[in-house]
């Protein structure tokens, strides 16, 4: 009936978001996030990790997967960082152009890689 030990984390999500449950910003799953500054002392650990993670552009979904947090929580956290000016977000649609699409050789490589997964 009772598990001998808990393997999860003690933090509840509302303590991570400070009680907020709704993201105000329009981050979507594939918005790319780049950190603009280094983490500082006393920063919430999730913020620090996001800043670490986004040294190179990272999609919101990937941050969520890395932090093992629900998308909503990650969006709230990213909203905080954006408001502080510590990250910049780039909507994929804005950068959409044929020139930046991967070439067919790479896509083939990806396909090959996917088959090997």
């Amino acid at each position: 009936m009772r598990r001998p030990v808990d393997t999860g984390d003690p933090d509840r999500l509302y303590t991570v978001t400070g009680g907020r449950s709704r993201a105000d910003d329009d981050f979507d799953l594939v918005t790319l996030v780049v950190s603009e500054s280094e983490p500082t002392a006393g920063m919430q650990s999730e913020h620090a990790r996001i800043l670490d993670l986004c040294r190179h552009p990272t999609a919101v979904v990937e941050i969520a997967a890395e932090l093992k947090l629900p998308i909503t929580v990650v969006r709230i956290l990213l909203g905080d960082l954006l408001a502080m000016g510590r990250i910049t977000a780039r909507h994929p649609r804005a950068a959409q152009s044929l020139a930046s699409l991967p070439d067919s050789a790479l896509l083939k490589e990806v396909l090959h890689g996917l088959r090997n997964l």
């Binding site: 799953l29 594939v30 190179h56 990272t58 999609a59 919101v60 979904v61 990937e62 969520a64 997967a65 629900p70 998308i71 991967p102 070439d103 790479l106 490589e109 990806v110 890689g113 997964l117």
Partner: peptide, 18 residues
């Protein structure tokens, strides 16, 4: 371009969780 493959994998997984 080299990161794209990795990102795709993560994206796929992220989609599933999200």
């Amino acid at each position: 371009t080299r990161d794209a493959g990795a990102r795709f994998g993560a994206f796929h997984r992220g989609r599933r969780s999200g």
